[in-house]
Amino acid sequence: MILNIKPETKKGWRLLSTPFIFSILLLAAPLTMMLLLSFWTQDYLILDRTFTLNNYIEAFTQPVYQLLFSRSLAISLTVTFFTVLLAYPMAYFISFHGGERKALWLFLITIPFWTSYLLRMFLWKVILGYNGVLNSFLLWLEMITEPLTFILYNANAVVIALTHGWAPFAILPIFVSLEKIDRSLLEASRDLGDGPFHQFFRVVLPLSAPGVVGAALIIFIPTVGDYITPKLVGGTDGLMIANMIQVQFSKANNAPLAAALSVSSLMIVAFISIVFVLVNRKHLRRY
């Protein structure tokens, strides 16, 4: 049995083993280590390796962490909702009315995102600030008499910046799923008496569901753990869980708690994503 390995398996593993071992060492081992650490305690520099659930109890019962978890989720879900809502008509326009210029439109959409993420998020601070680009522009046009203040250093700013930053990650998957729709189905629905409204809600939208679900997950998962955006434009009311993880690691010198917060965020994100996929499975499986 042991000696009876197929030659193809042997050849395959000879190639795959190096990248696989690399990923074990740099991903599986660190994640396992993080999990272990989250069950330990640290007192200044001394690490106590006795098993304890205290870090998790602290992470889920302390009001400050509860607030950060719920705020991170609320911001991320809002961002996901608005990004998909805005991206859908854009993807629809390109797919159904893009004509010869589909490739050009897709190219135009991706160009602004070739600037570094860091700079783009920082530019939102420059745009939304008290003396920023938007306020100075509106004052200059005399559309407002004093600068708007509700747009920077709060959760709104984080939502605006992230909704912008993740746009192509929603447009592209939705576009792909719209492209896959067999156009003869639309003709069939029209011939059978569906108006544009019914055609969209009964044919196009359900058929593009896989793209929408994919886009939602691609945006939701990384934005929950975003560090840069809340730090730059969030002020104190817009800080998220990633900022706390970093603080626990550096200033507070409590690596086990940081690990427990990381593991908890990962679990919460995984749980919500799985529920989301299960709820939408009806649409995803049918086609």
Binding site: P30, P222, D226, Q246, S262
Partner: peptide
């Protein structure tokens, strides 16, 4: 599909 902060924290811990 992993948030980058998780990858960063895990590597730093190791």
């Amino acid at each position: 599909v992993l948030p980058e902060i998780i990858v960063g924290v895990a590597l730093l811990i190791v």
